[in-house]
Design a protein around this nucleic acid. Structure first.
Lengths: 342, 342
DNA sequence: ATTTTAACTGCAAACGATTACAATTGAATA
DNA sequence: TATTCAATTGTAATCGTTTGCAGTTAAAAT
């Protein structure tokens, strides 16, 4: 069954050497046009397709780059991928995508898989569990450049693409403060991630600036998933420990919180206002529409891919830069203080 | 820079042959434990990692399978992927994911990419543009089994995993009919896809069963994306051609329609009721919550992966089967006739 | 003492392609 | 006629592994 035609088959059929066949197929100048035509015909007849594994072993270019993302379930990464793909397409590169499922172990497996497929570079957004820092470093040392985006490594020196998380977390919090909310909580993201830290820092600094008290209840662990936001909110409700506004790590957790709020017969924003982060399309659709920070997702992907290609080109030394893209806050109903407005 | 340690390096350092090194690393019986230990140590010292390209060239197993999906932007495919990954993990296989972006051309490129990486089999959900049928066939003939899921090929014989699209489209339509809606439209999916045809067929048959008239306006082209549903609805509104209920090809188009409805100052379900398809988590969150067909996404992935592994095992001939999974209709506010209920 | 056996180890040929470096041919130049 | 050159093709090494077969050594069996 597995009947691949190889160079050798064509060579045999034509009674010439594989070298000539190879050259003919590569359309080189130093091969007789007649022979070339024969080879091309025979190749088509036999349905020849070069074996890229062999090619790759030979000349170490794969024209492929690898991607590791934690998950696809939110709309965020798919859009980033679209941006990446655009840039790579233009440069004639292909993309192999892997999903770490937020697991350190799977992430490492994926990196090995990509390395094994001889990708020329890797784009990665790390898991919430932490980082395979030693492995990233090893890859870089062995000549496979890495570009981090969104969730970046704190330990490894490499180009990084992030947004102004601190600043916009600060804005978002101030927005709640200016709207007259008194008791503002923060649903914190996974503690291992620098994004979480940045957003928390923005929250805290904004609170401090306006002399708001931060107790040990103010900051709640809530992770990245809708489910987690749901559970965290349920817990607050069960404990009868209700803030009047929450700045959530991201949109899915805000959605989860909203679900719990509704189920408890409470109203948003009347009882509890919400702000999300990482604009998703559905933020506008839900009731009430969710105030959220809109990230330039597509651009994040583009930028990361460009940085990687740069690394590939000047195989020597562009200094590692961290690109920080701007974001935008979309204010919607979920965070306007109705009592104030009356 | 690119300083990979190879078998040869280890062999040289230890002044033995690469054959012995290879055997030592493969932990074979016929190598002196002392030598083995030396090799292992030296390998660690030099940070040796086998080059999988070379391995793959040698013994044609890659333990990798490839996946092609049209997009990730809806929650559907990510969940299917999770199911696939579970099964493959258990079987010790790895997954390379590619995205065709609904483009026939990119799909073919992706297939080539996967083939080039010597995947042992391919899972695919085809583009809305149609199929690369000849290429699928060629892959299968050349010994790379393919399993289709969700969006399957009509032309190629291969295992397929789908859900009871016809039946549930029928149910969904009947549900609208029983709820007393009079003028029911269908937002049709991409015409090239058999899923679209099945769902449309279900819609039509249900309408006919209940002697509802189907005019040339009843079925509206709306594609797969939220944007498309939005535009289609806007057009209906502009034409003042309003149904009182719409059975949408999928959830995103229903979301789009809802957005247009709200923007026009209309109410759902009072003015226009909606039913979606392919349950997404947010269906419950939006206002009104969306009635939708819930597909067993995770199970679709699992099933497809299992079918593929089966093909791989009995390298000969399991007959190609089409697995049809059941679904479930979740009735929510978006499709209940309020006038009726009073 | 001779033969058998076991325990290692190395040689060399694969896998499928690419590419320096000849080698061959015939025509053009001196 | 001798020399040079261009055009074309083949030989063989290479990429990093794996593996059948053969070779070496020493201990065990006869």
């Amino acid at each position: 069954m597995k009947k691949y035609a190889t160079l050798k088959d064509i060579a045999k059929a034509l009674k010439i050497s594989t070298a000539t066949v190879s050259r003919a197929l590569a359309d080189r100048w130093d091969v007789n046009p007649v022979t070339k035509k024969l080879v091309l015909e025979e190749a088509k007849r036999q349905n020849y397709r070069p074996n890229p594994i062999a090619t790759r072993l030979q000349n170490k270019r794969s024209k492929t780059i690898g991607l590791v993302v934690p998950e696809f379930s939110s709309a965020f990464f798919p859009k980033v991928i679209a941006g990446i793909q655009k840039v790579l397409d233009e440069a004639g590169f292909q993309l192999l995508i892997t999903q770490s499922q937020e697991s350190l172990e799977i992430e490492e497996r994926n990196l090995k898989l990509l390395e094994g497929n001889m990708v020329e570079g890797i784009l990665i957004s790390i898991t919430r569990e932490g980082e395979n820092a030693e492995y990233y470093q090893r890859l870089i040392d062995s000549g496979i450049p890495i570009v981090f985006f969104n969730r970046v490594s704190a330990k490894v020196e490499a180009p990084k693409v992030i947004i102004e998380d601190y600043k916009f977390a600060f804005f978002a919090t101030e927005h709640l403060i200016y709207n007259g909310f008194k008791k503002i909580y923060h649903f914190e993201g996974p503690v291992n991630l620098s994004v979480s830290k940045e957003r928390k820092r923005g929250f805290i600094d904004a609170m401090n600036k306006h002399h708001r008290q931060i107790t040990d209840k103010t900051i709640v662990q809530a992770g990245v998933l809708m489910e987690k936001g749901y559970l965290a909110m349920q817990k607050l409700i069960a404990n009868n420990d209700l803030p009047d506004a929450i700045f959530c790590f991201n949109d899915p957790t805000a959605f989860g919180a909203l679900k719990a709020i509704k189920e408890a017969g409470l109203k948003c924003p009347d009882d509890i206002a919400l702000v999300g982060f990482s604009e998703t399309e559905v933020a506008q659709l839900i009731e009430p529409p969710l105030t959220s920070i809109e990230q330039p997702t597509f651009e994040i992907g583009e930028t990361a891919a460009k940085l990687l290609l740069e690394q590939l080109d000047e195989c020597s030394s562009v200094p590692f830069k961290t690109v920080r893209l701007a974001a935008k806050i979309n204010i919607r109903k979920s965070s306007v203080n109705l009592k104030n407005n009356c």
